[in-house]
Every structure is written in structure tokens, then in C-alpha cells.
Design a protein around this nucleic acid. Structure first.
Lengths: 202, 202, 202, 202
DNA sequence: CATGAATGAGTTTTCATTCAT
DNA sequence: GATGAATGAAAACTCATTCAT
């Protein structure tokens, strides 16, 4: 019986957190980080402000949770791509395409969680931010490419970092300027650069 | 005499602005953008709060000034490098080295003005932000490289953007983690990636 | 049960508003419009400053509320007098008497809401200010008087305006100088002037 | 010699005061009472802010001076009309016409000095405000009318007060609404009301 | 346990007045 | 005497957090 109550309680907690998460995402998307107040989140979640503090100790913790849960699906689907039986190059292309599409969809939030320094400062102590996770994914592919012999023996982590920066930057660019460069073209350009660099080889 | 008074006045104004600039830099470095209040800046500058508003109409204008002044010398010296009579590759290397060194020196502020989305939003209407300026510098070099025949005929602006992102990212990385990778090695890695990409020469 | 909570909540809200209203009235009376700060109102109401903003979006809205609530009863009772089955002259006399007595009671506030230009500017968009409402009441009576044949065919709105001005002025006078002229005598004088003017007719 | 210096000094003082007066009038007209800061007055007067405090102890004193000087010419010309050899009725008409025209010209200031309670509070201790002076002028004419036999034996000061209120009100009305009623028609209406009231001649 | 009213420190900005030069 | 930079109290408004019900 206590079991049952326990289970019910946990279920409620989890549903509440989900509701608050969705509300927070909506508010963040609409008002930006500065405009995201506990009041607005509570109202959007149709929950008393005080209740937010039942589920999250404070605002930072709430944001950390949002951050985590927002990236979870991206991480999972990225993992699936990583696990696919592809050679490095097409795998990378698939990953990039996936990212661009995901960001396209969540453009409102991208800034806060990938780019925004204020958020990063806020979440500093947080384990694996989307960023490090993403860089590691890239590193994995690069390492795979080297092992397969398709890639040169570059410094893996530096290269992953560089690639991530390059990609993030064009994402940013796209979002800030509502730029029109279609995804296909973008990917082609990135892949080309990544593969051959700029040098007019031999 | 009026001349003299005039001159003295301008000198004082400029010194005050400099003092406020330095105070703002200190506060930004220490407390971040969120924590940078006019009160703190005034206190740090050892000036009355009201005086800030004598020299800057409002907070945004003050931040714009800091932004401007911070990047001015970087822009100027970058220009000098661009003007040198070098072929594209060594020119790029010189530019990167210069940037890395400058950022090393001003690490505390770099985040706010290159990375932070809130700041970029704040300064969006500002003419040439550091970013576009930097991207344009890179584009110039790439174009030069193509003309010289050393580079392939890549999409110049996309490539410049990618390169900038890559570089910015490792800077960020360096700053946030106090990473130790020495500048020489970093530059070598970046140049290598930029020139040849990752693909194994076939 | 929800009903009860709802009801209680509304009651509390209404009591808070009333409390804030009274505090605002006290502060306005004591310090004048210029001296009426949200801080003072909060302190007088023995409420946190922030709470004022729970009940009123901003200072203007608070003042509008005070204005409204102050004139509401006057408007209602004026309406009752207008609806009475009296001929124009006694009706006017009754109305004036009512006004004088009401103002006697609320002397401290009268200035801000009838006379003060700054307030009028502040409340300009407000629907029926006390002023236009009053002028319209007078116009109604004058029109009635003309229809009954007791009044000449004067320009109704101009005359209403003139009468209002005349009355307002003596009210002001009474309040500013704590003048002693008893209400009966005042009304007699006003009515006499209004009816016959100054001319030694025929 | 001391004499001469003395005289020169007084002359300068008087010219400075005049300049400040004109600047203050300009600022008041343009920005309203709220927007009239010492900074703006100083700038308009092309005088250092500190200098204002050489000629006027504080802002209130400055405003009192402006008030005084603004009404001086109106008072003087009113006096001339009062002194003319006219019977009461045409004299009153001439006076009203004069007032309307003067106000038309200085409409921007009218509010502050005739209507605005804040100003009146500010200037409360000031001797003869425009208002009392004007009421007294009207009282004089009414008294004259009674003596000439053209007016009934009304309560002089009350009637003067009523008339002033009526007139002031339509002035206000005119200014606030930029109402179009031409002066001639306005005067005719006021004179008619003043002479005969509203009652139908029996 | 949920609620949401209440809190009050903290933010940007203004401006009358002073005082060193 | 003239100047205007410097001052700092005071204003409106916000919002994370608490706690009585």
C-alpha cells in the first residue's frame, strides 16, 4: 500500500515536472531568458508559483532541468545515428543534417542553450552541456574516420572542437539573420570544407 | 584661452570615459553582464552614479562604448596585418596568432562581447560588431588566397564564417577551461585543418 | 468550496484595494500629487511596495482608481437627483447643494481631481472625467429648463460650461481659503446669478 | 565710481534675469512644468546652470519670477482698460476680449499659471496671483455697474468670482480641446449669460 | 500538499543643488 | 563672478523567494 502511494507520488512528480518543463520552454521561446520569470512559468504551467519551488529548489535548478530535458532527445537521436553502421563521412553528414533540422524546429531555444554565455555561466557546474556532448559526438566520428582510414591522423579533440565551432556559428548565423541558405547547400559546404579544407591540394 | 579650456575639458572628458571604461571592464569581468549594474560601475569608478549619465546617456550606450573601445585596437592591428605584403597563408597565420594573443590578454571580457547572445542582441544595431569585422577580415584573406591560386574556389563567405566559428570556439574553450594547449600548437592545428580538412589525400 | 475560496479572494482583493485607496487619498491630501510616491502610499497602507503593483499595474492606474472611486458616489447621487421629478430650477439647486456638501466632505482631494491640470493630463484618456460628467449633468438641466419654458433658448453647452466654471471656482475658493460663506448663502447667490445675470432688467 | 559700478551691476543683473525669464518661458511652453528642468532653462538661456542660482535662490523663486513677469503686462493693460472712461458693460467686454487674446497668444503658459494646481501650490505664498488680481478687476467693474445703475445689487465678490470661474473655464476648454468657437461668439455668449442669466424674462 | 499574496532588495534613470576651478 | 562637472537622494517598477492559510 505504501508502495502504491509511493509510486503514485513519483508519477505525479514526474508529470508535474514535465508540465513545468513544457511551460518553461514555451516561455523561454517566447520571452527569452531575461523575460523568463517564475511568474510566467507558473502561469503558463497553470500551477501555483509556490509549487515550482516544490519541484525545483530555485530558478537555476529549473533551468538546468529544462536544459537537460531539452537536449535529451537530441542526444538520443544523435546516439542512434552514431550507432548506425555507416562510414564516418555519411554518418557525419547525417548527424549534421539532424542537428540543423532539430535546431530549425527549436530555433527559439537554441540561443539559450548552445550559445548564450549567461546560460552557460548559470549552468556552469552542470555536467554534460549540449556543447560538450556534441563535441564528443563529433570526436567519435572523427576517430572512426581515422580508424577507417578515410581521415588523416589529426588531433581528434581539437578538430572536433573546430568543427563544432564552425557548425554552431552557421547555426547562429541562420537564426539571427533568418538567413535563407537551404540546409542541403549548407551541409554540402560544411562537408566540403571539413573534408578538404581550403588548400588547392597538389 | 577658450582654446585651452576647451582642450582641458576634452581631456577631462576623455579621462573620465577611460576611467568609467576601466571600471566597467572590471565589473564585467568580475560579475558578468547580469551582475553589471550602474551602481557597481559607479562605485568601481569611484564616481557618483549620476556622473555615469553625464558621459553616457544610458547603460546600453556605456556597454557599446566598452565594446567599441575593447575591439578598436584589435581591429587596427588586424588591419595592419591585412595590409602586409604576405601571401594568404602566412597572413592568416599571423592574424590568428594575433587574435589568440589579444584574447589571452583580455580573456575576462571576451565572453561578453564575442560570445554572449544577450550582449549581441543589445549591440545588434551597432555598426561593425567585432564579429562581422572579423569574418570580413577572414573573407578578405580567403579571397586573396583564391586569387593567388593557393586556395580552391570555395564559397568565400561561408568558409569565412566556418573558420571564424571554429576559431571562436577554441578561444572560448581556452578561456572557459583555462585550457593549456599552447598557442603554437593551436595555430598549427587550426592551419592544418583549414588547409587540408580531414580527408585522407587520395 | 472553490466558490468560497473564490469569494474570499475577491473580498480580500477588494479590501486591499480599499486600503490602498484610503492610503492614496491620505497621501494625496497630505503631500499633493507631486509628493505622492508609491513608497509613501505603500508605507501609509502598511503594505510592501511590490504589493501595490499586484493590485494596480502602475501609478497611473492607481490614480485612476482613486479618481474613479472618489467620484463614483457623487455621480450616482447626482444621477438620482437628475432623475427626480422636479422642474429645472429646484433640480439645479438640489444638485448644487449636493455638490457643495460632497466637496465639503472631501475637500482635500477636490483639487487634484477637478482642478489640477497635471492630473487631468494624466487621466486624459479616462472615459468620463468628473468634469465632463458634471458639465453634462448641467447641460441636461438647462435643456430641461428650456423645454419647460422656464429658461431662455441659450447656447446649452456654452452655458453649462460657464455655470460649471463658476461653480467650480467658488468650490476651489472655498477649499483654498477655508472660506466661511455658508452653503445656503452660496447657493442663493449662484442661483440668483444663474437665473437673472447681473443686468438690471428693464 | 562705486556708483557707476553699482549701476552697471544692477543693469547686468536685470538683463540676466530677463534672459533667464525668456528662456524659462520658452522651456515651459515647450516642455510643460514637469519638463522644465534647471538644465534646460540654463541651456536655453545660454548661461551656466550655476548662474541661475546666482540670480534666483532656487527653482521655486525662478518660477515665481516668471509668473510675476508674465502677468505684469496683462495686469498693466488690464489696468488701462479699467481706467478708461467706459460704462461697465463695454468695459467688461473690452477686458474679456483682451484676456482671451492674451491667452490665445500665451496658450502654452496659461495652464501653468492660471489652472495648474501644482503651480498654485508652488506659488502659494505669492502675493497677488493672476487669479486674485483678475477677480478684483472684475469686482471693480461690477461695482461700477451697480453704481451706474446698470447692474443689480448683487454680492460683488461672489459674482466676480463666479464670472471669473466661468471665463476661466471656457479658456481652459479652448486650450485643451483646441476648440474652434471664435472669440467674438464666445464673448457674445458670455456677455449674454452675464447680463441676463438663463431665466426667461417674465 | 498546493497556493498565491506579500515581500523588499535591487534596477535604471532623473535632476535640484553645490562647489572647486 | 561665471562655470558646469559632480553629487546622491529619490522615483517607478521588477521579481526570486517565502510562508500563512
Amino acid at each position: 500500500m505504501a508502495r502504491l502511494a509511493e509510486r503514485r507520488k513519483r508519477l505525479v512528480t514526474s508529470m508535474m515536472k514535465q508540465g513545468i518543463y513544457e511551460a518553461a520552454v514555451a516561455v523561454l521561446t517566447r520571452y527569452g531568458l531575461e523575460g523568463t520569470t517564475m511568474d510566467r512559468v507558473a502561469e503558463q504551467a497553470e500551477v501555483a508559483k509556490g509549487s515550482l519551488y516544490k519541484y525545483f529548489q530555485n530558478k537555476v535548478e529549473l533551468l538546468q532541468f529544462v536544459h537537460e530535458r531539452l537536449l535529451e532527445p537530441l542526444r538520443e537521436s544523435s546516439q542512434e545515428i552514431l550507432d548506425e553502421d555507416l562510414s564516418a563521412l555519411p554518418k557525419l553528414e547525417a548527424l549534421l543534417r539532424h542537428w540543423f533540422e532539430y535546431l530549425q524546429e527549436h530555433r527559439g531555444l537554441f540561443n539559450f542553450f548552445f550559445v548564450d554565455h549567461a546560460v552557460r555561466a548559470l549552468l556552469r557546474d552542470h555536467d554534460r552541456t549540449g556543447r560538450t556532448s556534441a563535441v564528443q559526438d563529433l570526436a567519435l566520428i572523427i576517430r572512426q574516420g581515422i580508424e577507417e582510414g578515410g581521415f588523416r591522423r589529426v588531433d581528434v579533440s581539437l578538430t572536433a572542437e573546430l568543427l563544432f565551432g564552425a557548425v554552431r556559428d552557421v547555426c547562429e548565423q541562420r537564426i539571427e539573420t533568418d538567413a535563407a541558405l537551404p540546409i542541403d547547400q549548407l551541409i554540402e559546404g560544411v562537408m566540403d570544407f571539413f573534408q578538404h579544407g581550403v588548400g588547392a591540394d597538389e
